[in-house]
């Protein structure tokens, strides 16, 4: 695509701002620019939808829904990641 306006957000900026957007921490003008980007970028709109879904799903998780071996596997992976 040809050059755009300097006020337009790039996809990378949208990814960086998505948490602030969901926490309603953006100013009104920032949010408008964010949403105008979404209106013409299917990829970013889908990204936002996925983040919302992940948040909704994580809210539904409870300790009891995780099998013991899965919990241990995850903790082992986390320890390896921290050590490595």
């Amino acid at each position: 695509m040809s050059t755009g306006s300097t006020q337009d957000l790039a996809c990378k900026e949208v990814v960086e701002l998505v948490t602030d957007y969901l926490e309603q921490a953006l100013s009104h003008d920032e949010r408008t620019r964010f949403e105008q980007h979404l209106a013409l970028c299917g990829g970013c709109k889908e990204y936002l939808r996925e983040i919302r879904s992940a948040i909704d799903l994580s809210r539904k998780l409870s300790r009891g829904t995780l099998a013991g071996n899965v919990r241990d596997d995850l903790l082992n992976l986390f320890r390896k990641w921290k050590a490595g």
């Binding site: 040809s2 755009g4 306006s5």
Partner: peptide, 27 residues
Amino acid sequence: YVADAATFANVGEVATVTYIVAEFARA
């Protein structure tokens, strides 16, 4: 810009077309 607009119009990406044409006007 015209080539870009025609490309996206041809595949039905209309929101992108409106943006490109507005940027064409700006340029």
